[in-house]
Each structure stands twice: as structure tokens, then as C-alpha cells.
Design a binder for these strands. Sequence first.
DNA 1: AATGAATGAGAGTTCATTCAT
DNA 2: AATGAATGAACTCTCATTCAT
Lengths: 206, 206, 206, 206
Amino acid sequence: MATISRKERDDQRRRQEILNTALSIFAAKGFHGTTMAQISQESQYPLGTIYKYFSGKQQMYHDLVLHKVQELGLIFLEISKEKETTARQKLLDSLFAKARFYQSNDEVIRIYISERSNIDAVLMPKLNQKVNKMHQKMVDLFQAIFEQGIRDGEFKAYPAKEIAIVFSDIAHSASWATLFREEDEEALQQRLKMIFEMFTQGVSIN
Amino acid sequence: MATISRKERDDQRRRQEILNTALSIFAAKGFHGTTMAQISQESQYPLGTIYKYFSGKQQMYHDLVLHKVQELGLIFLEISKEKETTARQKLLDSLFAKARFYQSNDEVIRIYISERSNIDAVLMPKLNQKVNKMHQKMVDLFQAIFEQGIRDGEFKAYPAKEIAIVFSDIAHSASWATLFREEDEEALQQRLKMIFEMFTQGVSIN
Amino acid sequence: MATISRKERDDQRRRQEILNTALSIFAAKGFHGTTMAQISQESQYPLGTIYKYFSGKQQMYHDLVLHKVQELGLIFLEISKEKETTARQKLLDSLFAKARFYQSNDEVIRIYISERSNIDAVLMPKLNQKVNKMHQKMVDLFQAIFEQGIRDGEFKAYPAKEIAIVFSDIAHSASWATLFREEDEEALQQRLKMIFEMFTQGVSIN
Amino acid sequence: MATISRKERDDQRRRQEILNTALSIFAAKGFHGTTMAQISQESQYPLGTIYKYFSGKQQMYHDLVLHKVQELGLIFLEISKEKETTARQKLLDSLFAKARFYQSNDEVIRIYISERSNIDAVLMPKLNQKVNKMHQKMVDLFQAIFEQGIRDGEFKAYPAKEIAIVFSDIAHSASWATLFREEDEEALQQRLKMIFEMFTQGVSIN
DNA sequence: AATGAATGAGAGTTCATTCAT
DNA sequence: AATGAATGAACTCTCATTCAT
């Protein structure tokens, strides 16, 4: 019904507004440096309301991280599902997509990395597990792409899983670097292409 | 002569014992999840004693991180300074060294990564700066190796800095993976060699 | 209109209750001998609540001292502003007022004296400055009264400032003594009058 | 015997050196702001040695205060015992003596005043009692002088005790003021004489 | 239903005193 | 006998969460 759906839409919007505010603060001050009072104040939502939408500080953080990681995962999923595209092209697309995603989500990226580094694994073991699981899924997507590429004679028959891991980290590092450089679009594209060429052609002479 | 008084030796030993305990706890629970009381209890040193050796929780953490990062830096420095070694071999050595270092220092590695991820940059900006500086130095060492390799006709003339960054992250990722696999020495060596071959020869079929 | 919301009134009352409790304890045990936990326990307000009203132990102490000193200052100001009163009478009024104030605020008086004595000037320099400033203002009021008295031919032409200081301290000492005697109202009045006569007529014969 | 007496003299000297250092620090930072470690460092005496001479921080403080107050008491005793001197002159002498004492002992004076204000009566009740007792003795000396003066027809027959209290506080206030003025010897003498004249002749015109 | 004031456990750190050397 | 490193109780203050309004 319309009434319910309006309420739902409002809820969704509020939730998102709160999350966005929380994201900025978490990224700036870290999980422990951020207080619920700050989030309440900055987001203009009363504390009680925030606790209506989230069961606690930790869950909020979980939501935030998982939501964003999922977003990135979806992008890769889209790319990997394309039918008429070569493996090579899919990888290149993924590389560009990741860099773009990092550029427009630099705040959350810090958090994602931090989570991956496991540091609060004891305090938030579930989040950590989930993040790693999603990371694994993304690597799996790459693995599938490499399997396709090997099948199609594009790539050498290295173990697809190992290549996927290496590629995933190259993509991360190339994208991460984006956040600390003042590159224009052109320079970014050139750099990414060069890195991709390194990866495919190797750095050795012959 | 090694005129270290007994007191000094004792001090050094105690300091190290405390640091070791702290390391375990920091690695397991993170900076914020660790309490001085825990370190005191676990290390069997009274709180007051710990504060004799370290001016506070934060300084302890700093010491811990910087000390270990320096250790890794020294290893790379040794390798890069070798005279009669080809660039190729130096890189291979570095890759193996990094993996071994990660294996024997898995606890501190989590901390190092966490620091690099910037998450508490506001709370501990100085540590962060220093860690990044040391990371930069390590990348610089790799860059020098690549410059040597390019000069000697071993490597293609990619921008040395970009290759260095890529290589550094591949090395990290390959070593990091070590911590979550049950590989014997043999399997590890094979994997590292394969990854290095990928990196040098490229994954594409021409 | 007195549109003080109930909340504001409650706040004010609570604040005052806490201050009153704190006052007793500070007066009995001094600043350093008093713990926030004691104030919390004695006042029946939880620690967190106390920190809602006061930003810390020191600020509480400041508030307490300044508030009370101001109160006394206002009393003197009232007296000194009276139009139709002789200087002599104003001084007598001030003397009585001070004694009464000491009687009904014996706890805070100890604190005031302690502050004036400068002992924690390094730890709480601002409070000390303010208290001394207010003390100076009170002496200035007396000075003005003496100037009036000299102009009117009531008093000898001693430097008004010096007489004011002497009078201020006589008033303090006479009032202070009140706290350690078991005088009825009658005896108090007689003693103060006698002291005032000593001050005005001198103790020497001819 | 000579050997013992040398030891005793050394002990006495060391004790005094420690006390002098402690005095400076107590006066500057207050009782609670001063740490035993500071006294040890500043005085160049090891902590253990200090605890040989004093049973604790508090006793040190006691010794310090009592010693100095006694010194002042002795001065007044000397003056009051003089045979051929008029009461008037004895008071004048006392006034000058007090001012000089304050000038050369400004550090301890702050402490003395602080003690008199009773603020740590619960923490150091014995010291407080003793200081007040000594203060009382000094007032008693003044009282005896006034009784002498009244007997000799120098002073009006006010209750000697009350005059003594008033005089004692005037003397304190006049001396205290010394610490915050930049008076030369001449100006000081004039001021004290004027204050004494005020006290004896009264401030009123007949 | 929505709010935000109230709560109190638990954090990091200090320092008077002891006592093994 | 002289030392000063070692001790740990006790301090102030913070903040995630609750629940009365």
C-alpha cells in the first residue's frame, strides 16, 4: 500500500542520511574516535532515532562497511557477467571501475582497508568474516575471468586463483594510489593502462 | 668493550618482554581494545613498572610498530646494496625475504597494515607519518633496483617508480597470503616463483 | 515573564544541590582531598550527571568560589551605593554584613581564604587571579567610602587606600573570629561595635 | 664525643638542605602539586635518604611549617620580654619584625596562611591544631603587651584579648602587603608607622 | 512514537612509600 | 647504611546505551 511504502521510503532515506554522516566521521576519526553523540549532532537525528535504525555503534559500522563493499562487488559482478567481452577487456574494465570507485568513495575505502587488515577481529569478528568473504567473492570473480581467458587462449595457464589474487592486489594498489595523486583523467587512464600492460606483458625483456 | 651494565641488560630484557606481550595483545585486540591493565597482567609486570619503560600506551604502540617496520626495512636495504647481484635476483630475494618476515612476524604485520590504512591518522598522526615514510623508503629501494635493471637491459623501460609500487604490493599480497595457508616450505617457494614469473613474463600469451 | 521551563528550573536546582554537596566536602577536605566519587555518592547524583553540569572538578571549584565571592561583593556594593548614609555608617554596615555572611557561609569562607592565600596559584592561576581581582574590588569600595568620609570631614586624611586595606582585614578578622566563638547575637553586636570603636577612636589614651 | 657530634652536625645540615629545597617547591606548587621525586631531584638527595630524615611527605610539610612559625614566635617572645620597653614600643617593634620576617620568608608565609585557613584540617589535623596553637600563643603575647599598656595607662581599657586579635591581623595584613609592593626601606617604614598611628589614634576626627 | 538526559563501568595515568640490593 | 627502582591503589573523566517522559 502507498502509506506503508511512503513510510518505508522515509525510513530508507533517513537511514541513509545517518549512514552518510556516520561514514564521514568514521573515516575521519576511526571507529573508536567516533562517538554516537557526534553522529547524532552532525546528522541532526536524535540519538534515540539512530538507535531505532541501528542496534548500536558496531552494527552501524558493519552496515556501512558491508553496504559499500557490496556496491563494489556488484560492479565487478556486472562486468564479469558480460557475454561478448574478452577476459582481457573485463579485467581492464574492472581495473578502471575499481579506480573510479576508490575515487568517489575515498572515505569508505580507508575503512574497508582497515577492516581487511583484521585489526579488530576480536572485537568485530563477524564483520571481519563477512568482509573477507566478500573480498573472496570478488577474487573468485576475477578467477572466473582468468579461467575464461585461459580457456580462450588469451592467458597463460597459471593457476587462475593465484593470478586472481595478484591481479586483485595490483588493482587495489593502482586505485589506492589514485587517492594521493593529483592526476587528471588523462594521466589516470595512461597510468592504469601502463600498469595493465606490465601485468599482461611482463616487465622483463624477452 | 661491551660494557653494558647488568642493569642495562635487565632493562633491555624487561622492556622487550613487555613489548612482546603488548604486541600479542595489540595484534589480537587492536589498539583500542587493549588495556594497560591487560598488558600488565599478561606480562606479569606491574602497571607502574610498565610506565617506567614507556611513557604511555600510545608511545608503546609507536615503539612497537616503528621497531618492526625498521627491521623489515633493514632487510631490504641489505638486499638492495649487494654488489654482484642482478636486479632480477634482488627482487626475487626481496620477495622471499618479505614472505619469511611475514611468516615470523604475523602479529606485527596486522598492526603494520592497520597503520598504513590510515584509520587512526587523526589520533596518531605522527606514527602514521613515520610508517608511511618508511614504506616510501622501501618502495624507493625497489625503484632503485628497477632502475638498475632497466640500465642493465633486464627490464623494459617502464617508469621505475610505478613498477616499484606494483611490485611492492605484489610482494605484500603474496606474503600476506602466506599467513592464511597451510603451505610447506616447498609449496611456498613454488608459489612465490610462479608469482615472480607472472610479474616478469606477463600473464598474456604474447 | 518568568518563562523558565521546568527543565531549566530542575537543572538549576540539581546544579545547586551538587554544588552544595561539593561545597561541604571541599570545605572539609580541601580541593585535593575531595574526589568526584565522593561528591557523586554524597549528592546522590551519578558521576556522569555531575559531568553534565560541570566540565570537571576544577571548574566546579571555580564556580563555587567565584559565586560565593561575588555574593559577598554584591552586598558591599549595595551598602556603598546608599545615598543618604554617612561613611561611618556604611563601614559599620559592612562590618556587620561581613560577619553575618561569614556566619551563614562558614564552609565557603575557608575556601575563599585558602584561595586568597595563593597556595595553588600554579595549579589554578585563573581562579586565583579572579579571586584577587574581586578582593581588590571590595577593597576599592571601602576606599571610596573612606574618600567620602574624608571629604565629609568624618575621617582624618590618611591615604584612603591604606585605611581601606586595614579596615578590610579588621573586618575579616572580626568576622572570622565569629566562626570559632559561641556568641549570641547580642555578644556579637557588642564585639563588632567595640572593634569598630577601636578602629575609629584608636586604642591609645589621648 | 666528637665523632658523634660531627655526624649529628652533618645530619642537621642535610635535614636543613632538604627542608630548604622542599620549602621552595611547596611554596611554588603547593602541597599536592609537589612530589617527593621532585624534592629528591632538586635537593640532590636520594629518595631513600629523604625518608631517613622525614617519615613522609606530610611530616616534612609539618616540620617546615612548624619550624618557621616557631621562628616567628620566638621573635615576638623576645620583644615581649624586654623589660624597659613601653607597650607601645613593643607593638611597634613587633609590627616591624613581622614585616621583616615576611619579607625574608615570603615562601613559607604562603604556606602558613594556607594552613591557618584550615583547608586541609581533615587531612592534616595535627598540623592545623599546632599552627593554631602557636598562632594563639602569639596573640597571647600581644594580649600581655596590651594588658601591660592598659596597666601603665598607655591604652584604653578595651578587652585586651580583642585588641590583641585586631592588632595581630593588622600586623599580618600590613606585612602581607609588603610582598606585593615594590617599596624601599623608607617607604615601608613610613607605611608601617602610619598604620600604627591609625591603630593607636583612630581614623575618626575626634 | 520519539526523544535526549541520565547512567556507571571502566579507561589511562600518577606518585607516596617500600625494600631488595 | 644508603639507594632509587618497583609497586598498585586511587584518581579524573568518557561515552554507549537505556528508558522515563
